[in-house]
Write a protein that binds this DNA or RNA. Structure first.
Lengths: 231, 231
DNA sequence: TGTTTATGGATTGTCGACAACACACAACCG
DNA sequence: CGGTTGTGTGTTGTCGACAATCCATAAACA
């Protein structure tokens, strides 16, 4: 075996886009998930397999399996022989979701401070948030905020934590989409993050934990009326 | 409507066991899950739908859906168009599982101390552990230990936390089944728990957190060789 | 009239058959 | 001999049809 080349030398180095083979159930799941997370499918809406199958022009099997995928995400609940529906969101569930998120993020912060991690990416996201806030770009701010927290979890270098956080954050997405976007001060939200990075850089565990904890709690406020669900 | 009776008066008050209608996929999932958690199906074992369908005498559909249920539990992983197999257990995953469990239990302890909760049940489980240890009953000790920790989580009164913990604890079950039962001192394991209850009763947050934290970490020790998987 | 028993429609659950796919190995050609 | 191109086999993916179940409403009965 010649060692100068990496095992396989492609005859055509041109990087043609690889056509990916995504199973139907996954495509269906993505569409439905997007609809739920964006609030187009409200909590309580019943999901009828036959109807969806016809509507999306796929077999009922694919719909079925897609819905089961959403069940794993905790976005759909099903009662045997009765039906499946978008999981209703109770006030209690919202509170639990945010409290668990807080624990996740605090855990991440602790791990980052224990094991060390490059903080550059966090600063990039902070800047993105500041820019978005300056532009009055709400969507951009939200996206950058998610990217920031996602990075925090990633830096903790804990695959299970990351997976759990992602699953949890989905519901947070949904909640945020359902609630009237209370136009709180964009600048303020953006400004909340740099101190967290600073505390991490300074190695100040207590401060970092307190800041991230307060921050996640802040966003947990919500108005129950805004997440009323369909029967 | 007459108000003296609760809506429906059963003609036969005899409490006959209601024959429950469990979907096939669930029965299949329970069997497979039990096999995985007990170590009869080792990590890495590939699960072939057709084979299982014939073996268990149900349609491939039911097997398929059952396996997807196990995927939700994180016990099975699947690669599209290639196959499904019992999720391999890496040393890292084991460590992550136990560290996340620690965070869950610490969270539970904190909540119990904040909101208050009756501790009677915990004492009962402690006694059961002591008894089992005195009898040299390993199985009994493990069962009581799980019951104790389950109760701790339940007392935290947090449905999402409880669900997450249950899912996580499944893997701990699996790990314990796979590892050579290192006959550590039964009395010692049993003795670790009452101080936790005492700290809870005394309202000593720091001590309770430290005790539960140390306790979960203790059990995280394992020998990688004992969880070697099949190809 | 009040209670029980059919009956119908809507929905999920289960099935067997066929299609799509990935991989390994044989056949072919320079 | 090296590399490419068929071909076969085992697996998952998708489908449409039928069975089981639940619920509401109507019919039958005392």
């Amino acid at each position: 075996m010649v060692a100068t080349k990496p095992a396989k030398a492609p005859a055509m180095p041109l990087d043609i886009a690889p056509i990916e083979n995504v199973p139907l159930r996954v495509q269906v799941a993505e569409q439905l998930r997007s609809a739920i997370l964006s609030g187009r499918l409200r909590p309580g809406t019943s999901l009828v397999e036959t109807a969806l199958a016809e509507q999306m022009n796929v077999s009922r099997t694919s719909i079925r399996e897609a819905i089961q995928l959403l069940e794993n995400d905790g976005l759909v609940e099903s009662i045997a022989y009765k039906g499946k529906r978008v999981k209703p969101l109770t006030e209690r569930e919202v509170a639990e979701t945010y409290s668990l998120r807080e624990v996740f993020e605090v855990m991440a912060v602790r791990r980052i401070l224990e094991n060390g991690a490059p903080l550059h990416q966090l600063r990039v996201h902070c800047d993105a948030m500041t820019d978005a806030a300056a532009r009055g770009d709400f969507e951009g701010l939200v996206a950058a905020d998610e990217a920031f927290h996602h990075s925090v979890i990633e830096l903790a270098d804990h695959a299970l934590l990351l997976a759990s956080w992602k699953s949890l954050y989905m519901r947070i997405h949904q909640i945020m989409a359902l609630r009237n976007r209370d136009e709180r001060n964009l600048e303020e939200v953006a400004g909340n993050h740099p101190p967290i990075v600073d505390a991490l850089a300074a190695g100040d565990t207590d401060l970092a934990v307190r800041l991230i904890s307060e921050h996640t709690q802040t966003l947990a406020t919500f108005d129950p009326a805004t997440i009323a669900q369909d029967p």
